[in-house]
Design a binder for these strands. Sequence first.
DNA 1: AAATTCGCCAACCGCCTACGA
DNA 2: TTCGTAGGCGGTTGGCGAATT
Length: 350
Amino acid sequence: MVKPPCYERMNVRKGNWNKDEDVKMIAYAPKQRTNWTDASKKTGPRKCGKSCKHKCSNHLRPDKKHENFTPQEEELIINLHAAIGSRWSIIAQQLPGRTDNDVKNYWNTKLKKKLSEMGIDHVTHKPFSQIISDYSSIGAFPNPNARVSYLNRDFTNPSFIQKQEPYSAAQFSNYTSTKSPESFLTNSIGNYANDTQPLDLLTQLQSITLVKQPPNCLTNQIMQPEICNEYASSSSSSSPPEILNEGWVPSSFGWRDFLLEDAIPPQTPVKENLEEVPAQGLLRQVENDMKQTDTEQLNEYDNDDDMLNSFKSPAPSSSANNSSFVEAMLDEEHDMFLEFPSLLEEPFYY
DNA sequence: AAATTCGCCAACCGCCTACGA
DNA sequence: TTCGTAGGCGGTTGGCGAATT
């Protein structure tokens, strides 16, 4: 049974708003923002509450910007989209005078196309060439060393969040001079360091990426910018990077990856970047709070002999204990391979 | 000048969650 | 605890004007 749309259920009108309806809603909305159904009844346009809310929040706002998006706004949208995906309301909060609908429309009509022209996939924010490489390696069994380097990333480290902004406004707006995704990504690294972001966004990023998402999603979203950075740092020339040949593991995940990412990665080696960005201090504060909670959870596990075997509550944290935890896992894995060397010889499909 | 295509963006749809009865 | 409703939010549609043929 399909639920009828609100305009049918509430016997209200569908379609564009006229001037008279706008005027009535402007007069009413500032006083009665909390009850949009009531607003729709009292103002007379006979629009459903959702429509009234949408109209007020998106088009009747006094602070609404009507001019074009600036390169800085473009950059911020792209960076935030790379970090948190299509959470337009959160992205819009960082752009004064812009609404989620504005940002969404701008993304769909302009930025997606712009990124495509640059050879960058708007979903993964990775160059198309790299995506093709990823697909070509689906099903390949990564060598143990590659898996170690994969595990050695600290997905909760603030530098990860910071490094997931691979673009800069200058690079983006000047892209047209090069039209090269490689050079674009390469030159973009680090240029975002001067930007600061308010704590509320950082907190939301943390809560979104670390709490709401399953482990695989978390890794997927946060890994990608790092991948871009590796990509960039490993390719000072315009030639395609040799990522796959350097022990880098593609970001296409099998269930093995999922299990591995449930493990707790140790401290990341990119700590030197932490002090460069003022906002990182705030982010670190948020992250430390979360680490503390995670460490407490781990301490509880210290009394549980089955913790290593159960994996029922993967904690995406990074403490000293976590390092030894991962090492223990890898040791066990190593022992297993010694015991069953055939596992190393051929891929194992499930 | 008419027809067609394209791009923008307001509005709608439907899923999900919070909240109160 | 359950159920109904309102509202938040992301995805999608369709109207309209501009550009092109």
